[in-house]
């Protein structure tokens, strides 16, 4: 019962947060001198009347607070509005969400699969040459500008013709067998996953290493060692379980990142994900689309934190008191 109450309380607490987020973003976007109709205006074959019609349709002729109120009231009713080119925002998001989910979940999976063990190794061999080498290697991954790395990989793809040049599926995807489809997807995913994996690996590795070091230093590990358990037994039986707790919080953050996409990488690889959509929307001030994606990002963040907290309560009896 306590947990449900706690969840409800948390959800109610987040409402003002969402409100603040929406106000900040809406006003910042609207204060910018970007004209959502710029492309139309520069098109010699678009007439003045068409432009006026568009201005009215997008409500650009009204004061900003009025625009905000209009947006907020329809958002609350679940209507995300239309993009500046007249498509439904909900449709646009729906098209992209599965693609981004696919990419980010693979990346997260891979990062955890490699990052957590490397973090543990780093902690076990603390201060050794091996530990240092791991940190240096992961730093290297973090140091390359993502878009630059992506471009280099694309050129590698062209030169070797091992991988397709960006995108997610081949033009004849629909005619392929199931196996062929999976292979096609995999081929397209290798490069973007490589870039995102390289970038996010070091963060997780460091985090895990720090967690482990923290735990290894604690009293009960010393106690376990004193009991005469072998070092590996100490690590796997005792240290690891406790070191994973902070990672659950981290997992919550990763959950939030699921849908925010990796704009620059997606852009270079022409990956049909949310990141590219939002990037393009921001660049031309397509307010309904930007607002919808920002709100989605915030909601995911809140949800992620909440999920992590609940998981923590379940896994760690010591924290259960929080709900009261």
């Amino acid at each position: 019962m306590n947990i449900i109450k706690y969840i409800l309380k948390r959800i109610i607490q987040t409402l003002p947060l969402l409100f603040i987020v929406s106000i900040i973003s809406f006003f910042i976007i609207r204060l910018s001198p970007i004209d959502p109709l710029a492309e139309l205006r520069l098109n010699p074959s678009i007439s003045q009347e068409t432009l006026q019609k568009e201005t009215q349709r997008l409500g650009l002729d009204k004061p900003i607070p009025v625009q905000y109120a209009k947006w907020a009231s329809s958002f609350v009713r679940g209507d995300l509005g239309v993009t500046s080119s007249g498509e439904r925002v909900a449709d646009k998001l729906k098209e992209r969400i599965p693609n981004t989910l696919l990419l980010t979940s693979i990346v997260i999976f891979m990062t955890w699969l490699v990052g957590v063990p490397l973090g543990i190794l780093g902690a076990v061999f603390h201060k050794s040459q091996f530990d240092r080498l791991l940190t240096v290697l992961s730093s290297i991954g973090m140091a390359i500008p993502s878009f630059f790395f992506a471009i280099l990989l694309l050129i590698f793809a062209v030169k070797t013709s091992l991988f397709p040049v960006g995108g997610l599926t081949s033009f004849d995807f629909d005619e392929m067998s199931l196996g062929g489809k999976i292979l096609d997807l995999a081929k397209h995913l290798v490069l973007p996953v490589t870039v995102l994996f390289t970038i996010s690996l070091s963060g997780l590795q460091r985090q895990m290493r720090a967690n482990m070091l923290d735990v290894m230093d604690s009293e009960y590990i010393k106690f376990a060692r004193a009991k005469g358990l072998s070092e590996w037994q100490v690590i796997f039986k005792h240290a690891l379980r406790n070191a994973l707790n902070p990672l659950i919080t981290l997992l919550g953050f990763e959950f939030a990142g699921l849908l925010s996409g990796a704009a620059l990488t997606e852009y270079v690889f022409q990956y049909p994900g949310l990141g590219r959509l939002i990037l393009e929307a921001v660049m031309k001030s397509d307010i309904n689309l930007v607002m919808a994606s920002l709100m989605m990002g915030s909601i995911m963040l809140v949800l992620g934190n909440l999920l992590a907290d609940i998981l923590l309560i379940i896994t760690d009896p010591r924290i259960r008191g929080v709900g009261k």
Partner: peptide, 20 residues
């Protein structure tokens, strides 16, 4: 007839080079 949607000129060139 297939139209590939490419984001920029650079990507288009790469696709031509890659015979796509």
């Amino acid at each position: 007839i297939v139209y590939l949607i490419v984001g920029d000129l650079n990507n288009e060139i790469l696709k031509f080079e890659g015979k796509e």
